[in-house]
Nucleic acid binder design. Structure first.
Lengths: 243, 243
DNA sequence: AAGTGGTCTAGACCACGAC
DNA sequence: TCGTGGTCTAGACCACTTA
């Protein structure tokens, strides 16, 4: 079913370079081989190498200096949003150096509220599937995430759904929908009584509230999420490369 | 002095396309001309066109559909972090549709605290320049930003500094330093008494706290900032394109 | 079948930094 | 001066969507 197309040349080069960084073959502060050397070594064109390096640079993983060379950023470990996904909580937790666990708390199918109906372009009263899940970092609860998906999207027997999947994987597998882009609202909020039962903390504590909207390439809303993010435990840290 | 190199071909194409979007020549939801058509129209190679479109797509401004075409995102107006800069507050405010004003509150030169010294790789007691500024959106105070720069970086007579400059421009003009990348910590916090004097609000209100670290391409810290961001007035909204 | 975007190549020339 | 990354070209072929 899910056709797994072979990895492209760029993806392979990307994987190799990331592996070398991970395994310490390239050490933070190191100067990497030049683009021409890499293109010779891998037997690919320089344009392909540049494409890959461009992505690594955009993540802040490497620093490129015209006339000099390409260097491995000394501060890679400080950042947890490499490759961007602010909404892929498991990866966020793991790339912060913690062990991530997902704990489904509640899965219910119910009519959409009017607010939900509007955000998901549904008729009032159409059903939605609501997934409430708790993410833990090294056992400590950090994120309480609620995701809402139109029930009409789901082609699978509800009893067979794996509610531990990432939302992206969930939409792909059960709804055959591909996320094209995501809009995330970052707001501050206070821990309410309900959320305090899940996240260890006292009601009234400040925390981050993320509202996430998922769309496909036709601008159709696929899902949205509402998450409480305990920033005392897990930093929300973004890198942005300039130029 | 500041050499202003002529805009590259990509920059020109980029400017033209953004202008067409801004002026409504391309309307949200529209299908843009194909890459080949654009490359013919502008007399540049398709690779150059793709380079520019790639950036617009990364910002979520356009959506590209293989086998179909390129479409202008219907939700462009909802997003205020196009081209990324979470720390360029004026642009953030203006691309949210507000009029932005900067109000310098205080400029002082003093020895670095031990925390500042460590973050900026300074010796204890070295001097720093502290800029405290208030950003307003349509007159309403939204961001209280404090930026700390090593005083030794500054080559200009302190009395002649323009304290209304963006931090990027400030570092470039007075310190001849180029920001290579920026790390931003987004945290939740409570309005304290001092900040409440500047931002209209009561102490104890939740708000966003941004801590921003600026580095050059040698990994040297250039500056850091501590900002109170009133998210009731201005949304902090990120787009991330998938794939 | 035709046209779109996605990937990749093999060159060229330029701007810049270190030596 | 030499090697680096930055820009740009003119092609080729593939994957995909639409008709």
């Amino acid at each position: 079913m899910l056709v797994t197309r072979p990895p492209s040349i760029s993806e392979q080069v990307d994987a190799i370079l990331r592996a070398r960084i991970r395994e310490g073959i390239y050490v933070p502060g190191d100067r990497l081989p030049s683009e021409s050397e890499l293109s010779l070594e891998f037997g690919v064109s320089r344009a392909t190498i540049r494409n890959v390096l461009g992505m690594l640079a955009a993540e802040g993983l490497i620093l490129r200096k015209q006339g000099d060379g390409t260097y491995l950023n000394r501060r890679i470990q400080e950042v947890n949003t490499h490759s961007g996904g602010l909404w892929e909580f498991s990866r966020l937790i793991e790339s912060s150096g913690h062990q991530s666990t997902i704990q489904p708390q509640q899965t219910e199918k119910r009519p959409a509220t009017s607010e939900e109906a509007e955000m998901l372009s549904l008729e009032a009263g159409e059903e939605v599937l609501v997934l409430k899940r708790l993410f833990r970092a090294d056992g400590r609860p950090v994120i309480l995430a609620t995701n809402v998906v139109p029930a009409g999207f789901i082609h699978t027997d509800p009893a067979r759904l794996d509610t531990r999947l990432q939302i992206r994987e969930f939409l792909m597998r059960y709804c055959r929908r591909k996320i094209a882009y995501v809009i995330t609202d970052v707001r501050s909020g206070l821990l309410d009584e309900d959320a305090a039962r899940f996240l260890e903390g006292e009601p009234g504590n400040p925390l981050l509230v993320l509202r996430t909207f998922f769309y496909d390439s036709d601008n159709r809303p696929l899902a949205f999420g509402h998450s409480y993010y305990d920033d005392r435990v897990l930093r929300l840290r973004l890198v942005q490369a300039w130029g």
